[in-house]
Design a protein around this nucleic acid. Structure first.
Length: 728
DNA sequence: CTTAGCACTTAGCACGACCAGA
DNA sequence: TCTGGTCGTGCTAAGTGCTAAG
């Protein structure tokens, strides 16, 4: 099966036969008139271009360009080379409680015409791919087995089953609905709130909202103006007429008693006896067993979040304009339930009704509600260990692997586009280059009422600096912007001259607050990408580059003779390379310095011990002690040395990990089969790499990948595929 | 087309359970 | 047994990207 042999256990994505050899012309790079010589640049008639005017001093060139630009602008509306923003309409009003249309297709979906077709296909396929799971092989009584298997926590090997490709996500779904936040309990009357020094008994609603704030007064959120303003506004809405007339100034509110009360409460909780804690845990487990599991297509699967978010104050990240707003309590009346028609419909709490019960098997969620702060829909969905999530995950990595097959082409393609005469194409090409090289996020447009963060397509001029030369390197672009979650991205990147010149062009005559890529947005980019490869979007590059980096790094950093500790350090380093690439950060753990100090101390002590042991050993040897004695000392010395090494490794690891979060990439970007294969190949226990949750999530990969699995075969080795069958 | 709505993935942080060393 | 620290887990915000509506 040639190239796709290593992919052939990959049902999720259709049509791998489309992928052929690297150099196959799969898509038409619409590069017009490609020029052979570097400098023999295609000359756009009106537009400026970059290289061929090399000789002109920069300033002169700039002027020239500016002039052209002006002309260009003068007749802008006639061509399609118009900044996208110019077409954009002003921001829409904030829609809080939009009535959503309920016209759904779910009623009709029971009978699909294609059904038979898929049945057919399934039958044909199943003779080949039907799994030989021990469980299933023995009994044809699948149903019975299944029940047993789930009770005992055995594995549903869905990845060995044929995947349907209609949009249907399930055929049977039954669950108990969500768990609601516990009702508000009033404060004991001994806990006083004072306003302007005056004791005040608050109404229930006002008190509840006050407690949300009181819990947070130690947090730096409460020092932010936006937080306080938003809170005050929403709090006042929850007050009675009378309260509202009195409480007008947050700074006159004294929440300290309330705060102290909660601190005390939490200490009491901590101080509970073993038995009490156990009892609570058991009650909790019981709830989890009842509500945390659903029945889907003959299997029990865990639900991810079956508890409704409790009311509280919205905590946005970064400078979120809505921070401090009240997140109101969710009732059954807010909840839409999704389940099978023929399932036991979940019961709303006594005296309540669901907002709606629907039976939409085109979606994966079990329940949803609209949150009031941002007007977004929240969902209750399955746990990552579920088939529905796992299959999607698997498919994601298969798409990334597929990208590997055409990445060379795509790179050539966008490099050629750097010279395009069309501005929008150049912008697209440079943006794509960043996405590919730097693993930037796509960068969708955002509303004003969210924190000001950007991704690639939404970069603004103020987010980059261009240096003809920096620290001895030519053509350096300095990126400095806030990305997702307001995490800062700072990077100094030497780029190709062409890219640099293009950027100078994009920046020209723009204010810092103007879009860098004014003729590009994510839809345009993704449209283009989907033409290059089926299923290709901007985010695939992140997955691809993350996974391939891990594979390469592992290859590079692993020495088969390593001890287990060294193996793990090697793995973490490879993982870290990816985390750095993807800019996955974390705040330095509070205890970092301290625990680092402890570690260092330990190392010192251990060093001393090693020295002593060394001396002891030498003395024994010289002193002509018995062979047994000498050997004993030698063993002791070796053990100490090993311990020291382990500590030192730990130290390195810890220091390097200070501000880098490994978890995110491990969970979301790294094809788990790479890690599994590596573990199997070098006999590293998988538990050292993946904890229990992670192993559950990646069960499919653990089962599937053998020691020889490769994410992508290294270049020009794609012929000998048969051996890459990762069976078992 | 553009835009809004929707579904789903990706993200860092807080907190509590648990564990190793004093 | 206590304590300090680490780690796992839950939580929920914040992204991406597709599609239907306007």
């Amino acid at each position: 099966m040639g190239v796709s042999a290593s992919l052939d256990r990959a049902p999720p994505t259709p049509s791998y036969n489309a992928i052929v050899e690297d150099d196959e012309d799969e898509y038409k790079p619409e590069v017009k008139e490609e020029d052979e010589e570097e400098e023999q640049e295609y000359k756009p008639d009106v537009k400026e271009e970059d290289e061929s005017e090399e000789e002109l001093p920069l300033a002169a060139r700039a002027q020239q360009k500016r002039k052209i630009k002006e002309e260009e602008e003068a007749e802008e509306d006639s061509d399609d080379d118009v900044p996208l923003t110019a077409r954009k309409k002003p921001k829409k009003e904030v829609k809080q409680e939009k009535k959503s249309k309920k016209r759904r297709k779910e009623e009709s979906e029971e009978e699909y015409d294609e059904e038979d077709y898929y049945e057919e296909k399934k039958k044909k396929k199943s003779s080949v791919s039907k799994s030989r799971t021990k469980v299933e092989a023995v009994t044809p009584e699948k149903k019975k087995k299944v029940k047993k298997e789930d009770e005992e926590g055995e594995v549903w090997k869905w990845w060995e089953e044929k995947k349907e490709n209609d949009g249907r996500k399930w055929t049977f779904l039954e669950h108990k609905g969500p768990i609601f936040a516990p009702p508000y309990e009033r404060l004991p009357s001994s806990v006083k709130f004072t306003y302007n020094g005056q004791e005040m008994k608050l109404s229930q609603d006002a008190e509840e909202i006050a407690t949300f704030y009181a819990r947070m007064i130690e947090h730096e959120y409460t020092t932010k103006e936006a937080f306080n303003t938003n809170f005050m506004k929403d709090w006042r809405k929850g007050m009675t007429e009378k309260e509202r007339s009195i409480i007008t100034d947050l700074s006159k509110c004294d929440f300290r008693k309330m705060h102290a009360y909660f601190v005390q409460k939490s200490e009491e909780r901590k101080a509970m006896s073993k038995e009490e804690k156990k009892k609570i845990k058991e009650e909790n487990d019981a709830l989890t067993t009842e509500y945390g599991v659903c029945k889907i297509d003959g299997h029990n699967e865990k639900i991810g979040n079956f508890r409704i978010e409790p009311p509280g104050l919205f905590r946005g990240r970064g400078e979120h304009p809505k921070m401090g707003k009240l997140k109101r309590r969710i009732q059954a009346e807010d909840i839409v339930i999704n389940c099978s028609k023929d399932s036991k419909i979940p019961q709303p709490p006594p005296g309540h009704k669901w907002k709606e019960v629907r039976h939409d098997n085109q979606v994966t969620w079990l329940a949803s509600w609209t949150e009031n702060v941002q007007g977004q829909i929240k969902y209750i969905m399955l746990n990552p260990s579920s088939k529905l999530k796992g299959e999607k995950d698997w498919q994601k990595y298969e798409t990334a692997r597929k990208l590997a097959l055409s990445i060379d082409k795509i790179r050539q393609n966008y490099q050629a586009d750097w010279k395009s005469k069309e501005m929008r194409i150049r912008q697209r090409a440079v943006a794509l280059y960043f996405i590919d090289k730097l693993a930037l996020r796509a960068g969708n447009e955002k509303d004003e009422d969210q924190a000001d963060t950007v991704g690639c397509c939404s970069l603004r001029v103020e987010h980059i600096q261009l240096h003809e030369e920096k620290d001895g390197k030519p053509y350096v672009v300095v990126f400095d912007f806030l990305g997702k979650d307001s995490i800062r991205y700072y990077n100094e990147v030497p780029v190709e001259k062409r890219v640099f010149k293009n950027l100078q062009l994009f920046v020209e005559n723009k204010k810092g607050t103007d879009d860098l890529f004014d003729r590009l947005n994510t839809q345009v980019l993704n449209k283009h990408l989907s033409e290059l490869m089926e299923g290709l979007t901007a985010k695939v590059f992140r997955t691809y580059n993350a996974s391939i980096t891990l594979q390469q790094q592992l290859e590079e950093l692993t020495d088969p003779n390593y001890s287990e500790a060294e193996m793990i350090l090697a793995y973490n380093r490879a993982n870290r390379a990816v985390a750095v690439l993807c800019n996955h950060q974390r705040s330095v753990p509070k205890s970092h310095d301290k625990s680092m100090g402890n570690l260092k101390e330990k190392i010192q002590t251990k060093k001393k011990q090693v020295k002593e042991a060394e001396r002891g050993y030498k003395d024994a040897k010289k002193g002509g002690e018995s062979k047994v004695m000498v050997d004993k000392k030698k063993t002791a010395l070796d053990r100490l040395k090993a311990q020291l090494l382990k500590l030192e490794v730990q130290e390195t690891d810890k220091e390097e990990n200070k501000t880098i979060a490994l978890g995110t990439s491990k969970l979301n970007y790294l094809d788990p089969r790479i890690s599994v294969a590596w573990c199997k190949k070098y006999n590293v226990p998988l538990e050292k790499i993946y904890n229990k949750t992670q192993r559950a999530k990646f069960r499919w990969a653990i089962d599937m990948a053998g020691p020889d699995y490769v994410f992508v075969a290294s270049k020009k080795k794609k012929k000998k595929e048969e051996s890459d069958d990762d069976e078992d």
